[in-house]
Simulated scan of single mutants.
Amino acid sequence: MNFEQLKKRVERSEQVVDGRILQTRLSWSGLQTNWKEGWTPPRIIIVGALLGFISGKAQPARAMRHVGQFANPKMMQLVTSVAGLVASVQSSFAASKAQTAADTADDAATTADVAATTADAAAGGAAGGAAADASMSAARVAAGSTATMHPFDADRPRSDRSRPDPQWDRQPSPAEAATDLSER
């Protein structure tokens, strides 16, 4: 077997593994969905009643004596340290998600600033209100916002949304534009 045949064989094996990973993820998500949909309130009540009946018949006092043999101070120390470890991992995961969100907001602010500058250049000295409207719409499009509603539209009744948007006397700062877009 030469090198090219080995290389093709390895590439094929990698493709098979990638396919199996994809199948596993799809099966896992399907299982999660079915599991969550399967736990309806009547089923939860029935399972709770059955487990309560079984635990009552299992002589809980005797079972608690057996649990006491394993619940020594060293075991409790192990449980609390594992709980601390889990909390630490969860907080680091949340911090990484927050950092990702901050980076995304920063990118949106930069994109909105570039769009506003482009809109000003395109307006070519048009009236301030028209340039502000163009920069706001360009910032929405550049930041990937599909909503065309103005921030004040959420407060207005549905029938009153045909009213024109208010004219702004200045452009929003990049931070304001990014905040406006991230709140949608």
Rank of each mutant, 00 (worst) to 15 (best):
R62F: 03
Q32G: 03
A61Y: 11
T100K: 06
D180S: 12
L181W: 01
K36H: 13
G48D: 11
A108Y: 00
A143E: 00
T117K: 12
R62D: 03
A178C: 13
G19L: 06
F70K: 07
W35H: 15
V16N: 13
A121S: 05
Q77P: 05
G128L: 03
A123I: 01
T118D: 06
P172T: 04
A130Y: 04
G144N: 02
R158G: 11
I44T: 11
A109N: 00
V141I: 15
G124Y: 11
A139M: 12
L22P: 01
A127V: 06
Q23C: 02
A138V: 06
P157E: 06
L31Q: 13
D155S: 14
V67F: 10
V10H: 15
K97H: 10
A102S: 04
R161L: 04
G125F: 04
A58E: 10
V89W: 05
G38W: 01
P42T: 05
L26Q: 07
S135K: 01
V114A: 07
S88V: 01
I46Y: 12
T104D: 10
M1S: 15
A147S: 15
V47C: 09
Q59S: 14
D153K: 06
M75R: 09
V114L: 07
N34G: 10
R20H: 10
K97R: 15
G38F: 10
M136C: 02
M149E: 12
L85I: 02
A134P: 04
F152A: 10
S88L: 06
V79C: 06
T118F: 00
M75W: 06
S55N: 12
G84S: 12
A131T: 08
G144T: 01
D153G: 07
A121Y: 11
A132F: 05
A126Q: 00
D160S: 08
Q99G: 02
T118K: 05
T33W: 08
A112V: 02
A71R: 09
T148G: 08
V114E: 04
G19E: 09
S92I: 14
I21G: 05
A116H: 02
D155N: 09
R12T: 14
S145D: 15
A134G: 03
L26V: 14
D180F: 08
A95V: 09
E37S: 09
P174L: 03
Q32C: 09
A95W: 04
V17A: 11
Q69F: 09
R140H: 03
E11L: 13
Q171W: 01
A147V: 04
A71P: 04
H66K: 15
A121L: 08
A116G: 00
A122K: 03
H150F: 05
F53V: 08
S13H: 09
F3G: 03
V86K: 03
P42K: 08
D160G: 01
V141Q: 09
A142R: 00
T24P: 00
S29Y: 06
V10E: 14
I21L: 15
A143R: 00
K7G: 04
F93Q: 12
S27Y: 08
